[in-house]
Amino acid sequence: MLKGVNRVLLGIVGLVLVVLGGPVLAIGLGAPAPSWWPHDGRHDVLLDEAARTRWRDEGWWWPVVIAVLALLVLLSLWWLLAVLRRRRPVEVLVDTGDGEDASLRRRALEQALAEEVSHLDGVDRAHVHLTGRRRAPRARVLLLLQPHIDPGTTLRSLTRGPLTHARNSTGLPTLPTETRLRAVKHRPERVT
C-alpha cells in the first residue's frame, strides 16, 4: 500500500512542480509568458510589495505560515524516512560453501518455508514473513492450529523441522524467529 501512496504523492508533487515551476523557468530563460500566467515578463516579480505586506499587520498570519511550513517539513521528512526504510529484504544472501554468496529471493524462501510449515501435524495454515537485513534475516511465522493439537509439540516440530531446514539450506548461522500461534475458529454447526 505504501508503494501506491508513494507513487500517487510523487505524481501530484511532480505535477505541481512542473505546472508552477516550468513557466517560471521558461520565462526566466526568455520564453514568452503563457496567457494564464499572472505576470507579464522576465523582469516581473512573483510577489510584489503589496502582496508580501498584505497580511503583515494581522496577528494570526505569521504563526499560521510558520505552522503550515513546519507541518510540510515534518510530513516531507516522514515521507522520506518511510521511503528509505525498508523493513523487508528483497533477497537473502545464501552461503554456497565455496566462499561465494548467492542471492535467494525473499518471497521464494517465504513460500518454501510456509509450504513446509503447513505440512506439520495440526497446522491448518501458515504465514511466513522475512524481515531484517540480507545477511541477517529474521522470520515471523503465524500458525493457525487445529483445535486438537498441542502448541508445544507444534512449536518443537517447527523448530526442529522447517526452521532448521531453512537455516541449513541458506547457510545462515542463526535464523531468529518470532512465532505466533492461533487456534482455527470453526463456525458452529447445527446438530439435528
Rank of each mutant, 00 (worst) to 15 (best):
A112R: 03
H165F: 11
W61N: 05
D101M: 08
G171W: 11
V90P: 03
E116D: 09
V64D: 08
R52L: 14
R133F: 01
P89C: 03
H165Q: 11
L130I: 00
P151W: 13
L120C: 05
L104Y: 07
V94T: 03
A112P: 00
T170E: 04
V83K: 02
A70H: 04
G99C: 03
L144T: 15
I66H: 04
W78T: 09
S76V: 14
G99D: 00
R140P: 02
D48A: 05
G59D: 04
R134A: 12
R160Y: 08
E116K: 04
W61V: 03
D57T: 08
L158E: 10
G59T: 04
L84Y: 09
R88S: 06
W55E: 00
D124C: 00
L145C: 04
A108M: 06
E115S: 12
L80D: 07
D48T: 04
V141N: 10
W79R: 10
W60I: 07
G99E: 00
V64L: 15
A114I: 06
D48W: 03
D124M: 02
A108Q: 12
L74T: 13
V128L: 12
V64G: 04
A139V: 10
D150I: 11
P162N: 02
W78F: 09
T154G: 03
L72K: 05
R54C: 04
R134M: 08
R156L: 05
T131F: 07
W61H: 09
A50P: 08
A70S: 12
R107E: 11
S118L: 12
L77D: 07
D95E: 08
G59M: 02
W79V: 01
V90I: 06
G132L: 03
N168K: 07
E116I: 01
L80M: 12
P137D: 07
V73I: 15
G171A: 11
S157G: 06
L142C: 05
P162K: 01
H129R: 14
L172S: 01
S157Y: 01
L142F: 10
L143I: 08
P151Y: 14
P147K: 14
A82H: 10
A126I: 06
A166F: 02
A82S: 15
L109W: 06
G59P: 05
L77G: 10
